[in-house]
């Protein structure tokens, strides 16, 4: 190399080498500093999240490990009897009922839309796709306002479980639709072509071949939408009425949900209710973890089987 650069003065060459060395050293230094910062970022990101999990378990465990937590109705503490609590049976059933009603509406409609979107590349489908994407990004409190104006006021139903379920269904619909669309699109089109080639009608092909093939993804999407809805506070807080003193499944009754109970508990002045809020939060987080993990593991296994 050096021979080819013969006219270059050796001093200059030394200088250049020196400069290059210095640059490399600086670059290496910068690189190691930034690498260290990346590691630091992981640490900074992990600390609060670990703190939350530790708080959840340390404060919440004693609640979720007692049966009265699930079976008793709540008892509000009073100024001079601050430690009485009762359980959260009404919110537990309330959340379950809210989700079930929301699913009754959101699952079939959401899947329908998703399949439609996957099978159509038309203009209306494109518009609908944009609408879906926009709805996914809409703040959830707006679903609460929507449920209030439609169910509570316009239809005159009043504060009710129905209104809460309606809001949750509107929240879940675009989520289910978009996961369904993706799963159906991911089905190899050779499958569809095979069906059509065998003389099956397009609808039969869809119903018998494509949708079953996409079922794993669709179900996973539904589970994830449920796990999102189950922790949703703003929607139900505005419209379900709260303070249901009894356990009820009737859609027109006032209801209570786990997240909204956390929200009101935490605004109480009694530390016993704060602790109970940790308990409910831990329960909720565990439910969501189990749902997400189940969806994940199940879909991973199904995929393996197919291969």
């Amino acid at each position: 190399m050096t021979d080819l650069l013969s006219p270059v003065d050796s001093e200059v060459r030394a200088h250049v080498r020196e400069r290059a060395e210095a640059t490399r050293a600086r670059r290496q230094a910068v690189s190691s500093i930034m690498t260290a910062l990346c590691w630091a970022a992981i640490a900074v990101a992990a600390v609060p999240l670990v703190m939350i999990l530790v708080e959840l378990f340390s404060k919440g465990w004693s609640y979720i490990s007692t049966s009265s937590f699930y079976t008793q109705l709540p008892q509000a503490p009073t100024l001079f009897s601050q430690n009485q609590l009762g359980g959260i049976s009404n919110s537990l059933i309330g959340s379950l009922v809210l989700i079930v009603y929301a699913c009754l509406a959101a699952v079939p409609i959401g899947i329908g839309i998703g399949v439609y979107l996957a099978e159509h590349d038309t203009k209306p489908a494109a518009v609908l796709r944009t609408v879906t994407a926009t709805m996914i990004g809409a703040p959830s409190i707006l679903m609460g306002l929507f449920a209030y104006s439609v169910i509570v006021i316009q239809f005159g139903v009043g504060f009710s479980i129905l209104a809460g379920s309606f809001g949750l269904a509107v929240l879940m619909l675009p989520l289910i639709a978009s996961t369904t669309e993706l799963s159906v699109r991911n089905v190899p089109h050779t499958l569809r072509e095979a069906g059509l080639a065998l003389g099956a009608r397009p609808s039969t092909t869809s119903l018998r071949i494509v949708i079953p093939a996409a079922l794993t993804g669709i179900v996973t999407g539904c589970i994830l939408a449920i796990s999102r809805a189950v922790g949703e506070t703003a929607v139900i807080y505005l419209v379900i009425g709260g303070t249901a003193s009894a356990i009820t499944w009737k859609p027109l009754d006032f209801g209570n949900g786990l997240p909204s109970t956390i929200y009101t508990d935490v605004q109480s002045s009694y530390s016993s209710q704060h602790d109970q809020a940790w308990g409910i939060a831990l329960f909720l987080v565990l439910v969501i973890f189990v749902l997400s993990l189940a969806a994940r593991i199940w879909s991973a296994r199904k995929q393996k089987v197919r291969r």
């Binding site: 509000a76 009073t78 100024l79 709260g242 303070t243 249901a244 109480s268």
Partner: peptide
């Protein structure tokens, strides 16, 4: 909440048990 709390001395105690839902 004092009147609706079964453990307090001045709680409302009708003959049948009742359920209170209080939101404070």
């Amino acid at each position: 909440t004092y009147f609706t709390t079964s453990s307090s001395a001045g709680a409302y105690k009708p003959t049948h048990s009742v359920t209170f839902g209080t939101d404070s």
